[in-house]
Amino acid sequence: MVEVNNLKKVFKLSKKDMKKEKTKQREKVAVDGLSFVAEPGQIFGLLGPNGAGKTTTLRCISTLIKPSSGDIAVEGIKVSYDPEEVRKKICFLTNELKLDTHFTPSYTIEYFGRLHGMTKGEIFKRKEELFKRFGVTDFENMAIGELSTGMKQKLSIAVSLVHDPRVIIFDEPTNGLDIITAKSVTDYLLEMKDMGKTVIISTHIMNVAEKLCDKVAIILDGKLNIEGTPEGICRQTGEQNLEEAFYKLYFKHGFGGVENV
């Protein structure tokens, strides 16, 4: 279970950033008072346009960055109190996280297994299982640099799951993947959900969210706009599908201008 309570993250902007963001403010509030709970055995989706604060929220949960205020608890452990213990319980996957292309998949999974404090026997068993599941076995002794993009992505997933985490966090899971690889990833997430794990994904592709998520939270401008099941949100907004519901909420929030185009 992941509990996010009144999360706020403020970034200080450098002069270069201020120019890039076209603002005169020295700070940017990326996430502003966000609260939600992701339950075990469910897939929780964070939806929102680019820059809404989805990735920042996931990074805070994953202990890569520290919240400015508010609390996050992963499996009952506060991220600010014991980030190492939190990292034992989670895996965080994003396109920004890469593997050293010089090494083989086999060595890489062993290395990360060791860093998770696993014994050689445990790593070997888990490696067999994950490589078989993601079809990496035939390539396990090739250099990662020689693998296809899809295979690299599958390997990244396998490596991040080596310690059998209770919580799986996936930033834009199908981004940049071909349709076959995307399917194998979403299938795996459903499998994880059935195993009782807590899964959190972020996406701006509403179809993915509708098909996968048990619960979604729409974030606009760092704030939670609406939270509920995809059906519930459609009902509340009076729309047929999540995509329409999202547009309605988006324009209602004040991102007008485009609506009339």
Binding site: S62, L64, E84, E85, R87, K88, C91, F92, T94, E96, L97, K98, L99, D100, T101, F112, L115, H116, G117, V159, S160
Partner: peptide, 17 residues
């Protein structure tokens, strides 16, 4: 180089201090 290639973030996701 590890930061540039994104492999440092993977390392930072391990429970190692």
């Amino acid at each position: 180089g590890e930061k540039e290639r994104g492999t440092m973030a993977t390392l930072l996701m391990t429970p190692v201090k």
